[in-house]
Write a protein that binds this DNA or RNA. Structure first.
Lengths: 235, 235
DNA sequence: ATTGAAGTATCGTTCAACAATCCAACGATG
DNA sequence: CATCGTTGGATTGTTGAACGATACTTCAAT
């Protein structure tokens, strides 16, 4: 997820053992990323360079480097001579995000005929975490657990690049939820669905699990899109 | 593809008609991107900030902003206090890239039961272009056409985000071909395959086309991985 | 109300400087 | 001869300030 290379040093073949100290720009990007998916800055809000670099205690140049990263992840949008703004997804974006999720999640699940044990475990753990959060009425963690569930599903593909793309898509989806500030009701009904999907997967029926997930995504998209279009024409 | 926002101005609702003038950093990134997929800089080579910003006539800060973008696209890798290097994919990367391609291309093709006319046309155009290039023995354009073919296949999903991810994956695949400087033989045999896939798709048999593509990807990956591992242990 | 012309705030980019770190060369030590 | 500190030079990391360019605001004039 970080930009500095953790993998083997390709030039020399040597391996990097210590975690690479991230650059300041990367740390700033990480901090902002957290804040953005946490909804600290509302979608559409402009982020002032001057104010932020004062607030974070870094120079403008460093902050701008961090901005570039987040713009590429679509968490921020950049407009020439106007600055960067928190992403403000439209209903079209919602549809596109779900298209992306279908291509990432469904094949990963459907083709998981012999899934890695660890990957399946992650899926189950996310379900558990979600249900525990629901018990505690900790809605925020419940949303996080739901995201982690889908991340884990995509993770069945065992591809680092697919995983990274998926986490981007999910981060942007978080923005979608912040546009309409109603995370509780949107996640709660889906927990049972997650449980069912995991059960099917663990019992060796990936195709059944994929079908379940397909209808899940359909209904979830419908719900979000209708809510979105309603909100859009209200404005 | 560009980082500045072309879409509707979300804050005001106004629409942007003129193409946004990209920032200098973005132009630099675009230029470097072209150079990288064209193989101007060999994989693994370090790119000196001092030299490049002199060469391109931009300041170091601007160049570094461009670097960040390309690092995020995996065309460059960044190592703290050592600088940025042209990506040098390993055989593991090759495998991961093919996993990603399967995820992106196969479902797009298989689910194209009622594909958009324009999207299918793009696939066919790429095939035509490839064959024309083969006639002229223009190997470089042939490789480009092959890439465009697969881009078009992924484009059947009609998702902007999937398309962008796909183009990233393909750009990185270009790097793979540059590691082993043998682009001719690697693309030529696959042109007929592309033709067949397009025919199946256009004749309303997406599942058949997907099967064809699946074996295509399998053999292509095998060929590349074996060539890669041979090269890796030779070094 | 619309148009047009300052004025202001912010971004885009550059430049110069210094600190931090890597690297290669060198010599000391066993 | 090989290995291990040390040292010095080169490159990156980060900062701060400066100035031009552009968008937004204000306000006067039609």
């Amino acid at each position: 997820m970080t930009a500095t290379d953790t993998r083997a040093d390709r030039s020399t073949g040597r391996t990097r053992l210590l975690p690479p100290m991230p650059t300041q720009a990367e740390r700033v990007a990480e901090l902002l990323r957290e804040s953005l998916i946490d909804g600290v800055y509302p979608p559409g809000r402009r982020l002032s360079e001057e104010r932020l670099c004062e607030e974070l205690g870094v120079s403008r140049n460093t902050l701008r480097e961090a901005f570039r990263l987040l713009v590429r992840e679509r968490l921020l949008v950049h407009q020439m001579h106007r600055g960067v703004f928190v992403g403000l997804p439209t209903s079209d974006d919602v549809r596109d995000l779900f298209k992306a999720r279908r291509t990432l999640e469904l094949p990963a699940l459907r083709d998981a005929t012999a899934p890695a044990e660890e990957a399946v475990r992650l899926v189950g753990a996310a379900v558990d975490e979600g249900e525990a959060a629901r018990e505690r009425e900790d809605w925020w963690r419940m949303g996080t657990a739901n995201m982690r569930f889908h991340q884990a599903v995509a993770g069945l593909s065992e591809s680092a690049r697919v995983n990274e793309f998926m986490s981007q898509v999910l981060a942007e989806t978080r923005l979608v939820f912040h546009v309409m500030d109603a995370p509780r009701e949107f996640h709660a009904p889906y927990l049972d669905w997650n449980r069912r999907i995991h059960t099917l997967l663990a019992s060796g029926d990936p195709r059944g699990a994929a079908e379940e997930l397909a209808t899940y995504l359909d209904t979830s998209e419908d719900q979000l899109v209708t809510a979105f279009t309603a909100m859009e024409e209200r404005a």
